Computed example of a mutant assay.
Amino acid sequence: MAAPHVLTTIDGPVAHVRLNRPDKLNAVDLDVLQGLLDAAAQVRSDRSVRVVVLEGEGASFCSGLDFAEAAKDRVRVARFFLRPPWRRTNAFQQALWAWRELPVPVIAVTRGHVFGAGIQLALAADFRFTTPDCRWSVLEAKWGLVPDMSGTVPLVELVGADVAKRLVLTGEVVSGAQAAALGLATDVADDPMKPAQELIDALLVRSPDSVAAGKKLLNGVRLGSLAAAFRRERLYQLRMFRSPNTVIARRAGMREPGGDTDGAAPQFGPRTFG
């Protein structure tokens, strides 16, 4: 039996999701897309998961879409490309956008290549940590195409209009260091898991409900009206007031430096929001 093209392992509160086509530099085929959809659904249903780490097995994060492999099943490609009437996205888009919609922070850790579908997957994460020599590109221009897997939305949120247009229109390749300077990557390090782990540690001492609500709140502010943003603030805050994890967070906050802390990390219950 062939190995799954996406591997998901859950280690306590952290889910590790890895593209698993290292011999193809983790190029995306239809099975990878389905694997990403299934992995996102698994994470969403597990309320003990509080952070997701997205990586690629082997030397590369993702080298883009595997056109040759996908073309072998044109009926399935058409089915993935057509948008169901009840969704805003088709399957090509949703396999990546699903990570944006998850009620937990998603951290992409990248090495090697972050091309085409790979850069769009990385941009769907909330944070991106990369090596200095990693290669990033919105590569679709090379093939006479445009990015169409949800990546245009986070791209224009992260960088200026001129930078976004240059990347999309030229398909130029930038290094991980350049990606960080442009705002595509959150941080750059020889071992990108080190800053990723520091962020994970910082997230795990906060209420899973306030983290989930904060992510959804900020995503909504970016894409919606002011009235909708203020309404969400009121609604989500009311939910926080009612969350048992808020009580735990409040008690832990009162014990932090300056209070009568005993140094113990707060022990939160399962996420109730999202």
Rank of each mutant, 00 (worst) to 15 (best):
T152C: 14
C134K: 06
A180Q: 11
G116R: 10
L102G: 01
W143R: 15
G171Y: 11
V153D: 08
A122M: 05
E157M: 14
C134L: 05
L155F: 12
D190Y: 04
G171S: 11
A179E: 07
V173S: 03
P147E: 11
A164P: 09
D133N: 14
F115L: 15
T186F: 10
G144P: 04
R166Q: 15
A117F: 14
G118W: 04
L139G: 14
R166H: 15
G118R: 04
V106F: 04
R166L: 14
D148T: 13
D187S: 00
Q120T: 12
G112Y: 13
T186I: 12
D162Y: 03
I119M: 14
G176Q: 10
L182N: 09
Q197V: 07
W136C: 14
R166N: 15
F127G: 06
D191R: 02
G112L: 13
F127S: 07
L102S: 00
L158Q: 09
M149H: 12
L139D: 14
G176H: 09
Q178L: 10
V146A: 00
V188S: 02
A122I: 02
V188N: 00
L139F: 15
G151W: 04
L155Q: 10
K165E: 08
I119W: 09
L145I: 07
S137N: 07
V153A: 10
A124V: 06
L102Y: 03
L121Y: 08
A177V: 01
V114G: 13
G160V: 09
G112C: 14
A124K: 01
M149P: 02
V138P: 01
V138R: 11
D133C: 09
K142I: 13
A180R: 09
L145K: 12
A141F: 11
G118N: 03
P154F: 01
R111M: 07
G116F: 13
A141P: 00
C134R: 04
D187G: 02
T110N: 12
A124G: 04
L184V: 11
Q197R: 12
T186V: 12
Q178C: 11
A185C: 14
S175D: 09
V168C: 03
V156Q: 13
L184T: 03
T170D: 14
A108S: 04
D190H: 01
A177C: 01
K165W: 05
V173N: 03
V106C: 01
G183T: 04
T130F: 01
C134E: 09
D133A: 12
G176Y: 07
D148I: 11
V109M: 03
V109R: 06
D191W: 00
F129C: 05
P103D: 03
G176P: 12
P195V: 06
P103N: 02
